[in-house]
């Protein structure tokens, strides 16, 4: 029992170690899960190697985090790869700089990244080069702005209590609202 679990744990660590050596990636570990940090131009070969050689068949999740006002890096795109045959989960992180970042698409390796990357374009403004159909998916097609960025306001309606009723009323565009 111990041997089989230790084989599995060593297997993931071995995979991670090989990726670090092969692609000069960095690895971090938190709460028992390793995360590979890879450069944007290398992410597609890394995932290709993981899918073909190491049996990570599924791209489970592709998301991004915005660290504004830190400009370098501002965004991190995170991939979660799952291997059904080996029962492992591996996370990958890609740092991106600037306000209009561009990075290569993952749809060639994992076709289900199509909608995930459309959502990242919609919500964060990250452009994916080579994506077949990059348009907005969740917001209306003519929406301006990328809502999940940290400098985009939440857009909430201020609750008007009796103590601030007059001040908020003065700020409104249309007094009947």
């Amino acid at each position: 029992m111990d041997d089989s679990t230790s084989t599995i744990v060593r297997s993931l660590a071995e995979t991670v170690q090989q990726m670090v050596e092969q692609f000069h990636a960095r690895v971090e570990e938190f709460r028992g899960d390793p995360t590979l940090e890879v450069r944007a131009d290398q992410i597609v070969p890394v995932c290709q190697a993981l899918r073909d050689a190491e049996g990570f068949e599924m791209l489970v999740d592709e998301t991004a985090v915005d660290y504004w006002p830190t400009e370098t890096p501002r965004f991190y795109v995170i991939y979660q790869l799952r291997s059904i045959s080996r029962n492992q989960l591996l996370s990958l992180r890609v740092p991106l700089d600037g306000n209009e970042p561009v990075m290569p698409t993952m749809t060639g390796v994992y076709p289900n990244a199509n909608w995930y990357e459309r959502e990242l374009w919609d919500m964060f403004g990250i452009h994916f080069a080579g994506h077949p159909d990059l348009r907005r998916i969740l917001m209306p097609h003519d929406w301006v702005g990328h809502p999940l960025r940290k400098d985009y306001p939440l857009g909430y309606e201020e609750p008007q209590f009796t103590f601030n009723y007059e001040q908020i009323q003065a700020r409104k565009l249309n007094p009947k609202d």
Binding site: F30, R31, V60, L89
Partner: peptide
């Protein structure tokens, strides 16, 4: 820190990717 935690929902794998920066609100 950041964690990814997943369960089996009736539809499939439901997962949460949570990034925390040490403040009381999730980042």
């Amino acid at each position: 820190g950041t964690v990814y935690s997943a369960v089996e929902s009736p539809r499939g794998e439901l997962g949460v990717y949570l990034v925390s920066d040490g403040s009381p609100k999730p980042y």
